[in-house]
């Protein structure tokens, strides 16, 4: 699994644009966990039964790879926002397919070259707070979070995705995982502890107040 903590996405983007194929490959390797976690978050349970999340990941990375020339952003946030747009679009296509609705080709071209792209991803929030949230938010953490989640054991991954990322209530999480609510709650607590250890290796200076 990739550790993206030290990677500078902006640099990779710039190099990939100027024709550095190694940087281009590295860029997609670095973002794979992100896309894969995002895909699992995106997929509703009923869809999950019919499609493998990796199909969605594959499709998304492929389109991003092909459409890289159209991407105009320069920052990590913009890049991830762009990836996510493609992902969401593909997920919507999957949904339509399973609903028996023809996908509209016209709609697909829009996101890749949309002039709005430069606006995706927020500027760096300014500093000034002392809560962990604010400390952490100074950095772009999405890649690290995705990597950390991908490194968790399977059941930890699932509970974190359902509870934290899909924001489902515990009752529903319990139902989906076929366990009791208290069991799921304890599982979740352990998963968070585990995740903190994973994230903490790179962020220890921030985490201990």
């Amino acid at each position: 699994m990739q550790t993206s903590g030290s990677v500078n996405v902006s640099d990779l983007l710039e190099k990939a644009r100027s024709g550095d194929d190694a940087a281009r490959d590295r860029l997609f390797v670095v973002c794979r966990n992100y896309v894969s976690v995002a895909a699992r978050v995106e997929m509703a349970s009923w869809l999950k039964a019919k499609v493998d999340a990796s199909d969605l990941v594959q499709q998304t990375l492929l389109e991003a790879h092909r459409g890289l020339e159209n991407f105009r952003g320069t920052t990590e946030a913009e890049w991830l926002g762009w990836l996510r747009r493609i992902l969401v679009h593909n997920a919507a296509d999957f949904v339509r397919r399973f609903h028996g609705v023809e996908k509209r080709c016209a709609g697909r071209e829009v996101p890749l070259a949309s002039p709005d792209d430069s606006q995706y991803g927020a500027p760096q929030p300014s500093s000034g707070g002392e809560t962990p949230s604010q400390l952490l938010m100074r950095k772009e953490l999405q890649l690290q979070v995705a990597d950390a989640v991908a490194r968790l054991p399977d059941d930890y991954q699932e509970v974190v995705i359902l509870r934290n990322l899909q924001q489902l209530p515990f009752d529903e999480v319990a139902q989906r995982m076929g366990r009791s609510r208290p069991a799921v709650q304890m599982l979740w607590m352990r998963a968070i502890r585990n995740l903190q250890e994973l994230l903490g290796t790179g962020e220890s200076s921030n985490d201990h107040a």
Partner: peptide
């Protein structure tokens, strides 16, 4: 705080 920071970080991940 560290665990809460972890939840915050997860919260930063797009829903």
């Amino acid at each position: 705080r560290a665990l809460a920071g972890c939840l915050d970080a997860l919260g930063q991940f797009p829903s």
